[in-house]
Design a binder for these strands. Structure first.
Length: 504
RNA sequence: GGGCAAUUGGCUGAGUGGUCAAAGGCAACGGUCUGCAAAACCGUACAAUCGUGGGUUCAAAUCCCACAUUGCCCUCCA
């Protein structure tokens, strides 16, 4: 089997993945800011890194997956006074900040569960790690890379850059920016006068008296800057140097760049070996964002309650849709594409379910029925799974192979292919590999809610239809089928005389 | 203005030097099955410039250059 290679944003190359500590992987992924409801943009990174987490586990690594919750407000500087997002909204909604944070954290967790994302190993909160953040800031000040102004602390980017460029670690190495070439923004920013230089960023921010979220610090009451939490928490749970840091591409600059600078000062080494960035989701070619006024909340997606959406799309449709493309490509959301994904997923899942129902022991395997060509095709397609995942987690190609197996599975089910055409070994391999990939690695699951009462009602109707059909009373049998179809329940007459159904 | 990417069929989206007149999904067409359907299966068509123009190479969608267009980042952002 080939080795796992990943595309490292830092080196802009695919590299063979070797963990720092054999057998163990430390992975940190930037989590959500829980000052508002989870939206479509949250779906991509957490599904992407969920699959990566699952795959690394499948490879036998013991993975510690850390994903933070940003619940301490960051300030915005949009030509206005500095303000804390969370406390601002809290006033509007007449809620305690922590109540708001709790509410949206819960919503986020619900959405993650519906996507069938596994829980991270540790989910630290920024508010729970104020002490660690202050400690880190103190160290940076001691080393001379930060300065205090009016109760706020700023990181001295210029000094960092000149000192660490000599060590081959210039500021901007991740995003490819050269500090000297940074042109002054035409934007008029407040609070800039406190900074020595424009690229400097806040480590700690003084809180004005009306600010609700505040903590005591050596520099007065305030709150942490928006980069320091990730540095403090990743170092605490994964060490000064760890294997994988993930997140959306939009975080590369300045967020991840600042993380690198802070951690490098504190620990005298660059913190992350492999930087993995997922690309953005677009809606009609535009990035989704508050400023574009085209955000789709996850709850709206699931209910269809948004003018952009023609219908509701289920969590598994979204998951499947996202996995059908490589994580490093942009993915455009459109109704046509989503509907295609919905149908595709259904076809995949129905085939997968029938495969798992095969009673392999009852199959009539005999040597003269064996089709060598088919066997080698199945083995080749199954073997491709690992190869594709090892090539920077290419779930798109894995799904393509799965779809090539679908007709094979369905044909065996429908007796178009003799059940003995595959050897017993390969039939078992097909079952187990498909289970491992479809469920364990890609994390797909059934959408059919189990509802035993509805099931019972349907069985009654199915029996009625069977009876009518046997009497050639097609008026009655068609009426049952038609009326159920209106309700979104499709009856299917199977080859063996049984009747199955799907609920839309 | 600067940084980083992308540009593939009707839609979506793989593909990074030869096995690519280019995967897979969806849509389309024909057929098998069916009382009729649906689903499934089989088959077919569709890119006559893989953004445009150059270059490297025996060989390019794939490497290099220029141009065009689009997106992301430079401000909270997944």
């Amino acid at each position: 089997m080939s080795q796992l290679s990943v595309y490292n944003s830092l080196t802009r190359k695919k590299e063979v993945f070797t963990p720092l500590t054999p057998g163990h992987v430390g992975m940190y992924v930037c989590g959500p800011t829980v000052s508002g409801e989870s939206h479509l943009g949250h779906a991509r990174p957490y599904i992407t890194f969920d699959v990566i987490f699952r795959y690394l586990t499948y490879l036998g690594y013991k993975v510690r997956y850390v994903r933070n919750i940003t619940d301490a407000g960051h300030f915005e500087e949009e030509g206005r006074e500095a303000e804390d997002k969370i406390s601002k909204k809290a006033v509007v909604e007449k809620l305690e900040p922590m109540e708001l944070v709790q509410k949206y954290t819960n919503r986020f967790h619900d959405a993650m569960k519906r996507f069938n994302n596994l829980e991270p190993s540790i989910e630290p909160t920024a508010t729970g790690h104020i002490v660690e953040q202050i400690g880190m800031i103190e160290k940076i000040i001691r080393d001379g890379y930060a300065y205090v102004v009016n109760g706020s602390v700023y990181f001295d980017v210029e000094k960092y850059n000149s000192d660490f460029s000599a060590k081959g670690l210039p500021y901007g190495m991740l995003s490819g920016r050269v500090l000297e070439e940074q042109v002054d923004s035409t934007r008029d920013l407040d609070n800039q006068e406190e900074k020595r230089n424009k690229p400097d960023f806040a480590l700690w921010k003084n809180a004005p008296p009306e600010h609700i979220m505040r903590w005591k610090s050596p520099w007065g009451d305030g709150f942490p800057g928006w980069h320091i939490e990730c540095s403090a928490m990743s170092a605490k749970y994964l060490g000064d140097e760890f294997d994988i840091h993930g997140g959306g591409m939009d975080l590369m600059f300045p967020h991840h760049e600042c993380e690198i600078a802070q951690s490098t000062v504190c620990n005298n080494k660059t913190p992350v070996r492999y930087w993995l960035h997922n690309n953005m989701i677009t809606i009609n070619g535009k990035k989704m964002g508050k400023s574009y006024n085209n955000t789709i909340k996850l709850s709206e997606l699931f209910s269809g309650n948004n003018p952009i959406l023609e219908q509701a799309y289920s969590p598994m449709t979204i998951r499947f849709f996202i996995l059908q493309t490589h994580y490093s490509s942009t993915l455009d959301f459109g109704n046509e594409a989503l509907k295609a994904a919905e149908k595709g997923f259904r076809r995949l899942w129905e085939s997968y379910e029938s495969l798992q129902k095969f009673q392999v022991d009852a199959f009539a395997f005999s040597e003269d029925q064996v089709d060598p060509e088919l066997n080698s095709k199945v083995v080749r397609l199954l073997g491709g799974f690992d190869e594709f995942m090892n090539d920077d987690f290419n779930t798109a190609k894995v799904l393509a192979n799965i779809f090539e197996l679908v007709p094979v599975i369905n044909s065996i089910r429908d007796k178009h292919i003799h059940p003995g055409a595959l050897t017993k070994e390969n039939m078992s391999l097909l079952q187990t590999q498909m289970k491992v990939y479809v469920e364990d690695i890609l994390g797909l699951q059934s959408e059919q809610a189990d509802n035993t009462k509805l099931e019972g009602v349907l069985q009654v109707l199915i029996e009625l239809r069977k009876t009518a059909k046997s009497k050639k009373d097609f008026v009655t049998s068609d009426a049952i089928r038609k009326q159920l179809l209106v309700l979104g329940i499709a009856l299917k007459d199977e080859k063996d005389g049984s009747i199955s159904y799907t609920i839309n």
